[in-house]
Computed example of a mutant assay.
Amino acid sequence: MSLRKQLNDILPTLLPNNPAEAIKGTELIRLARINLTGNYSDASLRYHFSIMSCDPTSAIAKVEKGQGYYRRSEPLPALSGAQELLAWTQGRLDDISGDDSSVDSAMLRIRKFRAVVTRYYEVNGRFPFAFRDPFTNTSPLGNLWKYPELVLVDWETGGSPDEEMSLDGGMLSLKQRLGIAPFRLHSARLRLSPSLMTYREDFFQTLSVSMWAQGGELIYAGPIADEALADGLRKLSAAYGVGVTSFGMTPEVLDDLPRPANILNAHPKETEAIMAKLDIHKIAAAQSRPHLDWVALNSLRSESEEADKLVAWLNHCIDERRAEPFKDE
């Protein structure tokens, strides 16, 4: 039996599940050698550990920061929509049969995560707009490549603390005369669990849904501990400019949070306690383009009432010269 085949059988029993408890290479070599048939050098074992850690089908993963290896978890159902759509890569909720409670639990987690992301950006001076209609269970799968879960709006606001919601009148007038948008729009795709198996789909869906906007952001709930995964995301970001952020929230953390409505309507002290549970890690910063694709945005408006609401909200803020949170009336 080849060394690779032996390691595939042995490593799952030796590796810890938690990246924080990662086992160092020297100790893993010692433990693996006890169970191996054949005499292999340390260098050969280290080489195989390194190569296998970049294989999404392998059990071994290398920690992104620090030293050591841990057991890569099995791919979980990925969020292919915002609230109503759950998928194995590009499937539908209908495709998942069996344990209904597991599906309900996964859907509740993503609703909580969406609420946390919304509240986080509201607290930090960005203005989220949510798309929901394109992700119902009967919606076409092509919507996953057309609509973002969230649009994040950054405005030119006033400089003084008392006028932090007021738009900068001088800059607003100048940009209007130059035909430049007085805001920056980034389309965001949300995902629960980062995975070496599915990150390319996550990334290119984010790129696709952001082509009409000025930038794209891929936001994961879970921590990105896998070195190969983090490197892969950074390389794609360097090539295409999509930002990648992890909120560092394990399923257990999400399960402990209050209901989504409570998160969105939390009092300041409650919001502070929720924000304290986050471990924000920016894998790659988003690159903003100077202009929107107005033709593509107008096409989106003709197909989606929510896109029309987005434009109406932006116009309202400009007319009032005040950045206001979106309210669906």
Results as ranks from 00 to 15, higher is better:
195 S>L: 08
157 T>P: 06
13 T>L: 11
16 P>Q: 05
228 A>Q: 00
163 E>K: 09
177 R>S: 00
252 E>P: 04
326 F>E: 00
155 W>D: 11
5 K>P: 01
43 A>C: 06
217 E>C: 05
286 A>W: 08
276 A>N: 02
147 Y>A: 05
40 Y>P: 01
88 W>F: 15
260 P>G: 09
258 P>F: 09
171 M>T: 15
202 D>W: 07
48 H>S: 03
229 L>N: 03
207 L>I: 02
263 I>D: 04
197 M>Y: 12
154 D>C: 03
325 P>E: 00
179 G>M: 12
34 I>V: 13
10 I>M: 01
139 S>W: 07
320 E>M: 13
202 D>C: 06
110 I>Y: 02
249 M>K: 09
131 F>C: 12
323 A>K: 06
60 I>C: 05
71 R>A: 09
196 L>A: 10
57 T>P: 08
140 P>R: 02
179 G>Q: 08
80 S>T: 06
246 S>A: 04
98 G>V: 04
28 L>H: 10
246 S>W: 06
128 P>Q: 02
80 S>H: 09
158 G>A: 12
246 S>D: 08
234 R>T: 04
101 S>K: 03
197 M>Q: 13
214 Q>R: 05
2 S>N: 10
52 M>V: 00
221 A>L: 01
97 S>P: 10
3 L>T: 01
51 I>F: 06
86 L>N: 04
38 G>W: 03
229 L>P: 00
11 L>F: 02
202 D>H: 13
75 P>F: 13
295 V>M: 11
199 Y>H: 13
171 M>A: 14
60 I>D: 03
170 G>F: 01
29 I>V: 14
222 G>H: 02
221 A>I: 02
239 A>W: 10
324 E>N: 02
111 R>C: 04
194 P>L: 08
317 C>S: 06
188 A>L: 13
32 A>R: 01
3 L>D: 00
207 L>S: 10
60 I>Y: 03
65 K>G: 10
293 D>S: 13
57 T>H: 09
242 V>Y: 07
233 L>R: 01
174 L>A: 12
51 I>N: 08
262 N>Q: 13
287 Q>V: 15
210 S>W: 04
10 I>R: 03
266 A>L: 00
219 I>W: 06
224 I>Q: 03
131 F>Y: 15
24 K>T: 14
105 S>I: 00
30 R>N: 10
98 G>F: 13
286 A>Q: 14
271 T>P: 11
68 G>P: 12
160 S>H: 12
87 A>S: 15
249 M>H: 03
204 F>N: 01
21 E>V: 15
97 S>D: 12
43 A>W: 08
100 D>R: 09
141 L>Y: 03
266 A>T: 00
63 V>K: 07
212 W>C: 01
184 R>M: 10
236 L>D: 11
286 A>D: 07
72 R>A: 03
